[in-house]
């Protein structure tokens, strides 16, 4: 597992392909046609559920109770932005949408900063126990958050952090750090030794090397980490379910209360779910390369 898996595919030109008969070629072309069709169907299969949610979010309550979203093809006039207007006007939901930002942004920034610092020490400063510490970090990669829910809830209760955005952020930082350190350390160790040696010869302090040499080179890895961590926190339900209260709840927790009457709440739930998806989908489409790399590197999380 490389920290930053290169997505670049190198197609090696193949020499010496045996000459194939007309029949073989026809079969292979036909086979390719079948592959195209099958994969196209698979792709449609993957898109339909999301498309259904989108359409459901664009139809009002009575339309959703009366007929399925697919009837929109015969009745496109039913489409409306009303649900979104209602949801944004709903103070609690809108607040939870903002809370999601208030949680995800600091949790991402803190993880990136702390992990960069720690990774630099693990990669380039020799100290006793460095090996052990690195192995501990690798071990923590798959730690289930369940082991920390009860103790941290108690701890936050004692510190007055329970039910606050700060508490939710801190928990996310703690469980984001192992992967973040793992990813950045792997990248940092790959930076050419000469760069660091030269700076040390010039008498640069560790801080200056970190800031002037490492960080500029590590931008792609930091970008991957930032996007991965941001989406990870944005998409969380469990942590916030335990540590947030009504005023600090992110959108996933706020919407969960509506799940009880799913059939009659489709308009609101689909709209809320789609609202919560807009940010991740946008980030994904714009930064997909970095996100994919982050996920691949963090495969063990």
């Amino acid at each position: 597992m490389t920290a930053v898996a290169d997505e670049v595919r190198i197609d090696v030109p193949v020499s010496g392909t045996p000459k194939r008969g007309v029949l073989t070629r026809a079969v292979s072309r036909l086979g390719n046609g079948v592959v195209q069709v099958v994969l196209a169907l698979v792709a449609v299969f993957w898109l339909v559920p999301v498309f259904g949610l989108l359409i459901a979010s664009l139809r009002d309550e009575s339309a959703n109770t009366a007929s399925g979203w697919w009837t929109v093809f015969t009745r496109p006039a039913e489409l409306t932005l009303e649900n979104y207007a209602d949801l944004v006007a709903n103070q609690a939901v809108w607040q939870s949408f903002l809370n999601t930002f208030y949680i995800a942004v600091p949790a991402t920034v803190l993880v990136v900063v702390m992990a960069s610092l720690a990774s630099y020490a693990l990669a380039w400063i020799e100290f006793p126990g460095r090996e052990t510490l690195t192995v501990v970090v690798v071990g923590l990669l798959v730690m289930p958050i369940q082991v920390a829910l009860i103790p941290v809830a108690k701890l936050f209760g004692a510190l007055g952090l329970f039910g606050t955005i700060t508490g939710v952020v801190l928990f996310h930082v703690a469980f984001g750090l192992p992967f973040a350190i793992f990813l950045l350390r792997n990248f940092f160790t790959g930076i050419p030794r000469d760069l660091i040696e030269a700076a040390r010869m010039d008498g640069a302090t560790e801080w200056v090397i970190f800031k002037r040499v490492i960080l500029p080179v590590a931008k792609p890895a930091i970008a991957s980490l930032t996007i991965f961590q941001f989406l990870w926190v944005w998409n969380d339900l469990l942590v916030a379910l335990v540590f947030a209260d009504q005023d600090s709840a992110p959108i996933t927790v706020a919407l969960r209360a509506q799940l009880r009457q799913f059939g009659t709440n489709i308009d609101m739930l689909s709209t809320g779910a789609f609202l919560s998806m807009i940010v991740p989908l946008g980030v994904f489409l714009v930064f997909q390369k970095y996100f994919v790399q982050g996920v691949l590197a963090g495969s063990t999380k």
């Binding site: 559920p49 259904g52 944005w234 689909s270 779910a273 919560s276 998806m277 997909q288």
Partner: peptide
């Protein structure tokens, strides 16, 4: 890209998607 897209959205949203499906 299409098949990777569900990784970007929350499990909560995916759950609602399939509850509807």
């Amino acid at each position: 890209l299409v098949l990777f897209m569900p990784m970007a959205i929350s499990l909560f949203a995916s759950g609602i998607i399939f509850r509807l499906v």
